[in-house]
């Protein structure tokens, strides 16, 4: 250990013998070669500072070796949040060579709705009527500052996006007399084509809920 008076004054960065402390730090911590080995062998200031630095280096290594295991369930809690975001995220994300395209989920909802409306036999089209509260809370937490309006939020709830993959839920009313399985199939094809044409996203699933017959 050093005693006051004989030791370096690290705040000034230069030892009384004129050697830069940083040079000694680099020597100990980074394994750099001594700049002046002959001087170092005899200089008490350098030797004291080096001893001090080696001790600190050892102690830092000891600290670095201390285990800091993650708490149990950290991964599960992360994946829970990621899962909610993936299902109810606000944006479809399309990485391109020169930038990233983000398409808001409610835009996808709007495109899907218009596509569904073109199908003969469809009365009215809505997104998912009641978003699950868990989804709303998660979305609010992730986008606290620039949140969408409640109407946009409600419209987007029927849309699941993950990267460029989209799952669409449409609720619709059918005109009386139209065979429903055929109608649902036609809606699926229209939504897949419409969304792909306008957004270049992959619609991997279209859930069609026929909720009522249009008068």
């Amino acid at each position: 250990m050093t005693t006051p008076g004989s030791s370096a004054r690290p705040s000034e960065g230069v030892l009384p013998c004129g050697v830069e402390l940083d040079a000694l730090v680099a020597q100990v911590a980074d394994g750099r070669r001594p700049e002046d080995p002959a001087h170092q062998r005899v200089c008490p200031h350098c030797r004291a500072a080096l001893a001090d630095l080696r001790e600190l280096d050892d102690e830092l290594r000891g600290l670095a070796a201390e285990p800091a295991p993650p708490p149990t369930g950290l991964g599960d809690r992360v994946m829970e949040r990621v899962g909610v975001m993936a299902t109810h995220g606000w944006h479809a994300v399309v990485p391109e060579r020169d930038g990233t395209t983000r398409i808001a989920a409610w835009v996808v909802a709007l495109v899907a709705r218009r596509a569904a409306l073109t199908v003969d036999g469809v009365g009215d089209v809505r997104g998912q009527a009641t978003p699950p509260p868990a989804a709303v809370a998660a979305v609010r937490a992730e986008y606290a500052d620039a949140g969408p309006t409640p109407a946009q939020r409600a419209g987007a709830m029927g849309i699941g996006v993950a990267g460029r993959k989209v799952v669409v839920t449409v609720q619709l009313t059918a005109r009386p007399g139209v065979p429903l399985p055929g109608l649902a199939g036609a809606v699926r094809r229209a939504v897949v084509t419409g969304v792909r044409e306008l957004t270049a996203l992959d619609v991997v699933e279209v859930d069609v809920h026929v909720t009522d017959l249009a008068e």
Binding site: T2, S7, P10, S11, G13, L21, D22, V25, A26, A29, D52, L53, E55, L56, E59, L60
Partner: peptide
Amino acid sequence: RVARARRALLQSMR
């Protein structure tokens, strides 16, 4: 930054 950090640690440990 790393050098300043090491100097500061050296000083507080002294």
